[in-house]
Design a protein around this nucleic acid. Sequence first.
DNA 1: TCTAAATGTCTATTGTTGTAGACAACCGTA
DNA 2: TACGGTTGTCTACAACAATAGACATTTAGA
Lengths: 245, 245
Amino acid sequence: MATDSSVQRQSGVALWRQIADRIRGAIANGEYDDTGRVPPEMALAARFGVNRHTVRSALAALAQEDIVRPIQGIGTMIVRKERLNFPISRRTRFIEGLGAQARETEGLLLQSREELASEDLLRRLELAEGSHVVRLETLRKADGRPVSRATAWFPVPWFAGIDEAYQRSGSITAAFKSLGLSDYTRVSTEVTATHADASDMKDLKLSAGAIVLVTRSLNADPGGKPVQFAISRFPADRVQFTIEN
Amino acid sequence: MATDSSVQRQSGVALWRQIADRIRGAIANGEYDDTGRVPPEMALAARFGVNRHTVRSALAALAQEDIVRPIQGIGTMIVRKERLNFPISRRTRFIEGLGAQARETEGLLLQSREELASEDLLRRLELAEGSHVVRLETLRKADGRPVSRATAWFPVPWFAGIDEAYQRSGSITAAFKSLGLSDYTRVSTEVTATHADASDMKDLKLSAGAIVLVTRSLNADPGGKPVQFAISRFPADRVQFTIEN
DNA sequence: TCTAAATGTCTATTGTTGTAGACAACCGTA
DNA sequence: TACGGTTGTCTACAACAATAGACATTTAGA
């Protein structure tokens, strides 16, 4: 608890959305685990100091996200509750990092293209002016739910064909291996957070106002030569990062 | 660019707030560095597909935050543009991490208390049942702007009096040193993101709908004994983290 | 000194958000 | 079967958000 449950009026964020975000967070924190359901609408209305109808708008939004399901006469049941944990270290691997947290993982290739490397990319991948890169747009799911949307760049000609290798295996690690790179390490990871944009909402199945964690990460081969730079976006209410030193 | 500039209607987040958040982000990304000012209201209105008055509401909110200042006849000038970078590593130090990014840093002690350690805290600090801890509530500023709000716990009797040591020096590192701990390392850091709550808005001077990055970090002495567990909250539009491995 | 471009102010209208109250429908249990 | 507690639906009204248009004011520059 310890949350003073006040909501902000006239802030440009509708009360029902603030309350929906609070309840979603409380579910993720396991605050209702003992009952398996959300408190009654009247109780929530009292707690947040709003009208019952406002709470209903919030719960309707959560039902739309398939997080709760209201049952007349009983209450509002919690359908799904998840917060995945991603370890970030020298040996960061997407699938291994999830470990036992998901029964099944999936990596989809949305798009791929070869393109001229931008200035920023040249610097990060330590490439010569005019170098080309392969860009992969990927979507990763755990147990059917999208958990990250990533754009990754790889130097060519070294990694030409990584798009097909990824499509076959659904894993960057496996794709690297099939192209002769048996090991790689995480060099650096930048973490920021921002509001979900239109494509986040579409790909990660988020609603407006949701938060995405954004990472910019660089991987290198054992000799230290950069092999991949990626910008990944994670739904903040379903994911957290852990940095072990 | 590459930002599809669409805004979401009927999402529970007012258009003026979405636009304010976008412009704040664009300023932080340096997109207007060449002119030092925001595009004219009519241009922004066209770009976001809204009425000029809606853009004015957004700019008024940013002016309220002291990020821009409108000047009649000229345009809307950018007053402040900041995104601080925090390195996270074994040797994470708040002030050193900021380095040259701020001319002046400040650490304020808001509150301190000795209390019984919670179950979670006992586990994280590896303490025996019934142990006590000192809790410090701190606020850190860089060049006068708040950049983090932290709650930190330290085992007693080892660190009894760390509140006064912190108040004198404004630095955890210095406070540790004055209590005989000359070195410590970061063991782990968890990162999540959430919406600003009422106390975030107050202490970090944020507006509703803003995003805070939340870290849960554990520090230990050179022998590996935990000396500090902290939950810190950073304004996401002014801060990013970098993990170097 | 005039003009173009920018922000400032005012009025009016429409759609969304939030409040308020009443009652229906449904469920488990006494 | 009756009751208390819960979600579902309806109407009405007030406050806020967004649009629309007109015109004033200020500034830089031709």
